[in-house]
Amino acid sequence: MLRFILIRLGQAIPILLAIYTITFFMVRAAPGGPFSQERKVAPHILEQQMEYYGFNDPTYIQYFRTLWQHISFDFPPLTSYPGLTSKDIILDTFPVSLELGILAMFVAIAIGLPVGILAAAKKNSLLDYAPMSFAMIGICLPTFVIGPLLALLLGVWLGWLNISGWFSWSDRILPALTLGLFYAAYIARLTRGGMLEALNMDYIRSARAKGASERAVVLVHALRGGIMPVISFFGPALAGLISGSFVVETIFQVPGLGRHFIQAALSRDHSLILSTVLFYAALIIIANMVVDIAQVMLNPKLRYG
């Protein structure tokens, strides 16, 4: 397993380098600069700012300097937050997104898995159709619709929860629910599909023939195979969840990392764009690796390699 991890990490290096290079040149190709504002800055001040942040240097120097900054974790001041670096921003906001992501994943699994299993076990019954139609709606309804609806219902009308902020324990409920419901719908569908396939396998017939109870057949024998598609989905989904969701963070004013992805691009903050993109890429690589390991652990037919 160690060898597998080392190979995977070795493969990550060229991937990250390619992502860095593409992002670096895309950012520079975008029209408008970090200092352009509606209220225009005087030319000599613009020149001073460009010089201070090193934008006047030849592109190849900027390319290698920024690359080195990311390798050595020694980041320059940001153009959009002059007193901070992208490391400060990520260290500050990632724990929030991580917490929200894990909570949302928990919601997604707690709802999605049982619904999917039940739907597969009671195929073509009301217990299949009703939750699955619901899941379809969940997938189609974007978070920016579900979020405000939940906020109106639980926050404004019932007055149970704060509708914005990230202060008390209860402030976690609305964003986690909004984000989690969306993934719950996916997980329910994936689980149902995987379970249906597994339930048609020969070994299930054998289990039934040996007199195993229906409960044992579904939850012990079929689930192990049926959950595979969910596990594969888990990796990218987890990376997406814990790196923050711009929409949910904006709707509930959650101080997470997700909004910085968008804000950095909108304010053309070169350093912050590169750092957040690389951070996200690294998260996806790690999450996928963890999922691959989990799959080998769950499926005796798979081997590391």
Binding site: A151, L152, N162, I163, S164, T250, I251, Q253, R259
Partner: peptide, 15 residues
Amino acid sequence: YPFENTQTEFRAFQS
């Protein structure tokens, strides 16, 4: 309190 979204701000005021 910072608010990027005026709808969120409005709901915060309402509640």
